[in-house]
Amino acid sequence: MSHDHSLNPKTMPEDPSKATMEGKHKFLGLWFFLGGETVLFACFFGTYLALRNSTAGGPTSQDLFGLDLVFLMTVLLLTSSLTSVYAIYHMKNNDFKKMMLWLGITALLGIGFLACEIYEFAHYIHDYGFTFRSSAFGSAFYTLVGFHGGHVIFGLSWLITLMVRNAKRGLNLYNAPKFNTFALYWHFIDVVWVFIFTVVYLMGMVS
């Protein structure tokens, strides 16, 4: 019944992340949590939509946003979603090294995304004087995008902790579910971003 022996081809279940009770619970729990997160972001999006024209004489979305940086950020995050799929693919094939490699790439892409975001915010603040307090639009923009960024930071910390903790242990039935739940969470961050670039940036450029 102990969980600590590593997997070999013989003990390898079809999906190691769901082979134990704990694994199944984590899997369901994370999904249900994402249902709640959907509503959380829905409310931030709703607030943003209501306030996006409340610029109080300050910069508007057309003044601020630029397509190239947002496109770069989108590609970074979408790609990181794919690389985490690769990681889980190698997990199912019980190839620990490759899994870690792809997770590492995922982390780098995430960091790249975050760097772009920090650059973007700094740019708005310094070049436009557009801050969290400038207008209701400013508050809503930074809160929505910032909460997403916060999720990226949390996801990265989670990923790095997992990788460091399990670097020497290899894959087993105890940690496989943890990697899998992380990957789900990471995809969800991507889902939210798809709506952010569409609703905040693209729609902000249009209207």
């Binding site: 369901l28 999904w31 249900f32 999006f45 709703g46």
Partner: peptide
């Protein structure tokens, strides 16, 4: 069940979006 709850979340999202 994940699908059920995600669609529940999407339904609430829809209501919130329309309202706001």
């Amino acid at each position: 069940f994940p699908a059920l709850l995600i669609f529940g979340g999407i339904w609430v999202t829809f209501l919130v979006g329309v309202t706001f």
